[in-house]
Amino acid sequence: MVEGTEYQLQCDIQNIAPLQNLVVKWYKGNEPLDNVTYSIVSKTPVDVSDTLMISPSRHDDGAQYRCRAQLDLGPEGPQPHPTVTSEPLNITVHYTPEFLPGNDTVEVSAGSDVSLDCSAEGNPPPELRWTNNTAEGNANETTVGRLRTLNISRVTANATYNCTVTNRLGSITKQIHVLVKVPPQQHPTMFSTTPSTPGTMTTLPATAKPKLVTFPLELNPPRVVVRYGDSVSVNCSTSFTDHEGMGWEATFGGTGFEQEVNVVTWTVDNLIDWTIEPTCYITLIDGEQPSEVLPVILYKTPDSISISVLRHSGPMVEGTEYQLQCDIQNIAPLQNLDCEV
């Protein structure tokens, strides 16, 4: 089952009488869900069916559903009431990945080792992919259950790592920033807050005036929505003239490192990578390498869509309930699907 989707459970009860004394009880584990009684009078044995609509969440993964048929024959009847319980129905719920709590920013001393946590859960269990535009230190991944860790040795510069977890229902990404701490003695003295003469104002020296810092990269367009198999093109530009070079990193359409340019273009003629995360990066003269990830939504319209009646064939009978089913084949992304009736 898929989280958030409605399903109908059916309890079939055979050869029971009298029907007007029947109580059908539904349970999830030991939790009562519903009681159903019948007003139709029938003294001879009949077969009946009752249904229960459920919309399972990820917390219902592994849950057991049961139905119970109980004859309430009043105080004169058997005590306790005659009861027959079904075998449990075990359900498996598939759901999109979700990150477990963790730090998005990690501080480390220059030359030290650091471990980045990108733990997530999902069903089916998600696959993880790390991306980073800098070859900073030596990195290796470790996985223990739901815990996913990237261990990096000898960190010397600030860096941003992108962690993407994916299963067949969806994909999510988060950024983890590694900040290298500068020793206190290396921080420049900006200005003194002590006035030289009582009652006078202290003026900041020209060299200590605040400097406006802007992010060096701009994507145009800033995000894209692409039909499966179509082409796509995005420009990454910078207003910084003092840099060593820039480029795109991607599984398809990467440009490599280009020097003496202020614009690089990511282009793919036939986009079919569901998990692609193109990243534009720039190498500044101080060794910093800011980057910007392009959000990409790749979509596919269904191969076919059909409607059918469940567990019924032939003409319908007035006043009888029927369940219609709409089958949609090969569509993505599922989280953007809207079914209208």
Rank of each mutant, 00 (worst) to 15 (best):
P222N: 08
P222L: 07
V226I: 15
R227F: 06
Y228D: 01
G229E: 11
G229C: 11
S231G: 14
V232G: 01
V232Q: 00
S233L: 09
S233P: 05
V234S: 00
N235V: 09
N235I: 09
S237C: 05
S237V: 07
T238K: 02
T238I: 02
S239W: 08
S239E: 10
T241L: 11
H243T: 04
E244G: 08
E244I: 10
E244L: 15
G247D: 02
G247L: 01
W248E: 01
E249H: 14
E249Y: 13
A250M: 05
T251P: 06
F252H: 12
F252V: 14
G253C: 03
G254K: 06
G254C: 08
T255Q: 07
T255K: 05
G256L: 03
F257N: 04
E258F: 09
E260K: 14
V261L: 08
V264D: 00
V264F: 03
T265R: 05
W266L: 04
T267Q: 08
T267G: 05
D269K: 13
D269E: 11
N270L: 12
I272L: 13
I272T: 15
D273L: 13
W274F: 14
T279A: 04
T279F: 03
C280L: 04
Y281M: 05
L284N: 02
L284G: 07
L284C: 06
L284A: 04
I285N: 11
D286C: 12
D286P: 07
G287T: 04
Q289T: 13
P290K: 10
P290L: 05
P290S: 07
S291G: 04
L294E: 01
P295A: 01
V296A: 01
V296Y: 03
I297E: 04
I297P: 04
Y299Q: 03
K300A: 10
K300M: 07
T301E: 09
I307K: 13
V309E: 02
V309Q: 05
R311M: 08
E318G: 12
E318K: 14
G319M: 05
G319T: 07
T320M: 14
T320H: 15
T320R: 15
E321F: 11
E321C: 09
L324G: 09
Q325F: 06
C326F: 03
D327S: 12
I328K: 02
I328R: 02
I328C: 03
Q329W: 12
Q329G: 08
I331Q: 01
I331N: 01
A332N: 06
A332I: 07
P333V: 00
P333I: 03
P333T: 00
N336M: 14
L337C: 08
L337T: 09
C339G: 06
C339M: 13
C339H: 10
E340I: 15
E340L: 15
